[in-house]
Design a protein around this nucleic acid. Structure first.
Lengths: 190, 190
DNA sequence: ATTATCTATAGATCTATAGATAATGC
DNA sequence: ATTATCTATAGATCTATAGATAATGC
């Protein structure tokens, strides 16, 4: 039974981190407060010392998921020698398709966020903007005018392809979706 | 209190129809059996004479939503003079974005289906195949070899754009997503 | 003294079932 | 006689709260 301010901050961090993963995997309504707290190594009674309500955690966890889910993209952005092809291949990889809990939340939480609080939707909107900016920088050779529109359309292709690849239960079709989207994107952004 | 076989079939139909809409709008876990039955004008006790379990209704309602949601696409497919531009404009319209309950279930149910039964996922896979076939027919001028890949990538763009347009709470950005995707699709499929 | 966490539980809600009621259909 | 629907409720689960416990930090 830890009690210091440091330990409380660590508990809070652990709850949000667990929720950010589980919400992406099982949906925002896919797990109870009690089960979440157990996953974080705590009992459910302590929950309300950290959050005013379940919705408060949802908002904070969505923000966290959006940040965490762009880890790969952030790494790419930090390296000036990165290419758009590398981003496309990473986003449309089998690894990303199969690891929802650590993957991009713009895809994993799209439907949940559309039904969620303004706070969650604002965080989502900001993250979309960040992705668009990243893609724009990576396709600079393209004429300036159409660059933002092309980046938005490219992001839509990435998100839609991974969404469908996860929903179908035909492995061959799933891979075909990812590969077709990747080939198409590389060709049109080159 | 109706009791004929015809009336039972009508009740069943009404429950599935209501569920197909509400599940798209609120998510598969977004409404209780009792509330669904009330929406269908029945009391919740009668539910289990129609379905073995809630999951059975989910599977049937997902199948129905996938069929209903392609109504516009089906109409386009039936008319030999239809164009790919008409499909793109309809799919990426504000009307489609704002009417989730009657819209395309490949977008609205993607995340729920990924976590659902094999039956629901099979229905989803089939519907993806139907959309791809439809788009392929509409872009016949394109060289045969790349047609299927282009159709899959186009479908991904449609699905991703509507998903994001619904999740963001910035109306300007939402419209920009739809318009950018539409312009990009029309240009690359021409 | 304060507070982070725990145990226990209240109150609401959800799925599913039991038994009653009122029609249909042989 | 059969059955579609209704009322009522059992049993499980979920969010949130109350009060106890055990550590921190003045």
């Amino acid at each position: 039974m830890g009690h210091s301010k440091v330990e409380k901050a660590e508990s809070h961090e652990r709850i949000v981190k667990v929720a950010a993963g589980v919400f992406r995997e099982l949906g925002v309504d896919g797990i109870s407060v009690a089960d979440l707290m157990q996953c974080a190594g705590l009992t459910h009674g302590g929950f309300y010392r950290h959050f005013g309500s379940r919705d408060d955690l949802v908002a904070e966890a969505v923000e966290r998921a959006l940040k965490d889910g762009s880890a790969v993209a952030d790494a790419v952005a930090a390296n000036p020698r990165s290419t758009i092809d590398a981003v496309v291949d990473a986003y449309l990889s089998l690894a990303h398709r199969d690891n929802v809990a650590s993957g991009c939340a713009v895809t994993a939480l799209a439907n949940d966020v559309a039904r969620s609080t303004e706070r969650a939707r604002s965080a989502y909107s900001l993250q979309v903007g960040r992705y668009v900016d990243l893609i724009m920088r990576l396709i600079e050779p393209m004429p300036q005018k159409k660059r933002r529109a092309a980046a938005l359309a490219a992001l839509a292709t990435l998100v839609g392809a991974v969404s469908m690849a996860r929903a179908v239960n035909d492995e061959r079709l799933s891979r075909e979706i990812l590969k077709s989207a990747a080939d198409d994107l590389k060709a049109r952004l080159a």
